[in-house]
Design a binder for these strands. Sequence first.
DNA 1: CCAGTAACTGGACCGACGGTTCACTTAGTG
DNA 2: CACTAAGTGAACCGTCGGTCCAGTTACTGG
Lengths: 182, 182
Amino acid sequence: MPERADAARNRAAILRAAERLLAENGRVSVEEIAQAAGVGKGTVFHRFGSRAGLMRALMETRVAHLTEAIETGPPPLGPGAPATDRLSAFLDAVVDLATRNVALVAAYEEEERQAGGVYQYWHRHVSTLIAQARPELDAELLAHILLGALHSDLVLHLVRRGDTGRLTATLRELVARLLSPR
Amino acid sequence: MPERADAARNRAAILRAAERLLAENGRVSVEEIAQAAGVGKGTVFHRFGSRAGLMRALMETRVAHLTEAIETGPPPLGPGAPATDRLSAFLDAVVDLATRNVALVAAYEEEERQAGGVYQYWHRHVSTLIAQARPELDAELLAHILLGALHSDLVLHLVRRGDTGRLTATLRELVARLLSPR
DNA sequence: CCAGTAACTGGACCGACGGTTCACTTAGTG
DNA sequence: CACTAAGTGAACCGTCGGTCCAGTTACTGG
């Protein structure tokens, strides 16, 4: 038995409410989300397990199309382009995603402290690309540092100043200098 | 009138207790700290204003000697050495400090979201050095990214694997590639 | 169409925590 | 030694994530 119709309806309502509230105000309690979705708090926990689970689900829907583009889309985001180009394209895409969903990314980070989920997937992607381009570097660690540039604190700071273009530019510069032969 | 003797005694007791508990367990509530220090919770808030204030005070005592070394100590940490060397020396010092106080740094980060305090001071230092070495780069942003490599999440991850040497090495490599002429 | 049932629902409740209040105590002063 | 301002701490508050459980409801097999 897949999922009861009312359950599916409520799940969708919860996700929609959470997304809206998160975009409007910065921080939102689970109770507020439940109320806005027209359900009880218990229902939210029944469906998503915890606040973290809800944030993860939210994040995953938002990230799904990027994941697909990476795995099966056209180059340079998808397979086929040189590692350096793929890395730049990926970072561009993530900067874009992060700047357009600051509150969600912040809420997500507050829970899943880089264990499992989206972060780990991104880390492996970046790490692999670095290792392909320059096998002698500490790809794993550099991937953490590069992704650290997307921490919500910094992005929020830049968004407030309307300066997100700097982030894209600097990351490209960084990748170029890091991955080009000396 | 400077500070009453009993007040000074209690302040010291609170700081000592907080430091100890933070090193032993990861997270500590203000009440636990107060109890361990043998005072009431109200006293802690009266002295430090908030949990964040307590963490800041704690952090500042831990960081004082590094600040002094930067401002008036001998090169390469202090003034006098080339910017690149000073930057490397500084990052080494901060990695060392962070790895030996993971829990404290984590607790501090949880509060002061890079507004004012220690982080801002470090950021200006790094930013200035980068600008001196390579004026055409976006020093301010790169400083944020470099300091992002010291986020407690990453440091904790490395400390657990006994791998902190990699962080120092990679940061040196990064600085070298970033600040050397192409 | 109906009865059985398992999944779903939601509001009351819980424990933890950061922070506030205020009546009381105590260290320093003239 | 009395006065007072600073200091103290325990009771209290609001919020929040999470749990419980009695009642409800969507599907299913007869």
